[in-house]
Structure formats: structure tokens, C-alpha cells
């Protein structure tokens, strides 16, 4: 009887998010590549090479709340300067892995909640914009983008 009751409950609840099934992974860096002093450089979230990418896995029927921690400046490797970076309201795109999923553009500066309808997992691509000053120190600059995901 106990086993029957448990099976009934499992059927009613649907697939449960076992602890090992939720996943957030940083896949690809947001890479602006060569930047010219004094010339702003933007990477579109749809850029297949230079956009940043995260992978999120949950379950169909579940919800995820996404909150980015975005840098406002990149730091010169070895010291000696900062490079301003900004993110526009359309700089993030989420798309489920199911064939029928379509991309959703959202504002990476604000918290977003998604209900997973057709895909249990999805990718988030992130664009951005750096604005080097005319006297920006040459060299490599680096910063960290963090994606915080809460699974419901």
C-alpha cells in the first residue's frame, strides 16, 4: 500500500528535480577581442563566437529565476587601468534546447523568471559593450560575469 501511494504521488507531481539535475555552467567567455582605443565595441548576444554563454538545466514545468552579477569595468591584466563595460536591455538571449524553442531576449541588468514549458534546459547568450577611452592603456582586460540561478 505504501509503495502504491508513493507511485501515485510521483505520477501526480511529475518528474522531480533531483539535486543532481539542476545545473548552471559557464560555457563560453564574453570575448570582445581586439578593441581600438577611443572606439566603442559591442558584441551582440547572437554572436556565435564572441558572445558569452551559460547553460542552465532544470525540468519542464519548473521555474528558474536568473540574476546576473555584471561588471561595470574590466581590469587590465597586470594592473594599470580599467575598461568600462555596459550591458543594454537587449543584451541577453535565452533559448531552450528543444527544437521548437524560440529565443527570448531579456534585460541582463534585471532579475528574470522563466517557466520552462518546452525545454528542460536552455542556453543563455550574453552580449555587451566596452567603451575604451582615447588614452586607454593598451593590453588585456578581464572581468567576471556571474549568473545566479534559483530553481523552483
Amino acid at each position: 500500500m505504501l509503495r502504491c501511494a508513493c507511485l501515485l504521488l510521483l505520477a501526480l507531481l511529475g518528474p522531480l528535480p533531483l539535486l543532481g539535475q539542476t545545473q548552471v555552467v559557464g560555457i563560453r567567455d564574453l570575448n570582445f577581442g581586439p578593441v581600438i582605443r577611443g572606439v566603442p565595441n559591442a558584441v551582440a548576444p547572437t554572436d556565435p563566437v564572441r558572445s558569452g554563454q551559460f547553460y542552465v538545466r532544470h525540468r519542464i514545468g519548473g521555474s528558474v529565476q536568473l540574476r546576473f552579477t555584471l561588471p561595470t569595468r574590466l581590469t587590465r591584466v597586470g594592473g594599470g587601468g580599467n575598461l568600462p563595460i555596459s550591458f543594454a536591455t537587449t543584451d541577453a538571449v535565452a533559448q531552450g534546447t528543444a527544437g521548437s524553442s524560440v529565443p527570448v531576449t531579456f534585460n541582463p541588468n534585471a532579475t528574470q523568471t522563466f517557466n520552462l514549458v518546452t525545454s528542460a534546459d536552455f542556453n543563455i547568450r550574453l552580449g555587451g559593450r566596452v567603451s575604451p577611452a582615447a588614452n586607454q592603456a593598451t593590453g588585456s582586460y578581464r572581468g567576471t560575469v556571474t549568473l545566479n540561478v534559483t530553481f523552483f
Binding site: 507531481l13 555552467v25 559557464g26 567567455d29 570582445f32 581586439p34 556571474t146 540561478v149
Partner: peptide, 22 residues
């Protein structure tokens, strides 16, 4: 089971943002 189904879990991941100024 209900607790397992409804408790919020939080995870995070990082990527780098990089640029080379010439």
C-alpha cells in the same frame, strides 16, 4: 516529496569578459 519539489535551490556559474585594447 513536496518539500523536495518546491524548495528553491540556488546555483551560480561564472564566465570571463575579456578584451584586448590595441
Amino acid at each position: 516529496l513536496l518539500s523536495l519539489a518546491t524548495a528553491a535551490q540556488a546555483q551560480s556559474a561564472n564566465i570571463n569578459a575579456t578584451a584586448v585594447v590595441y
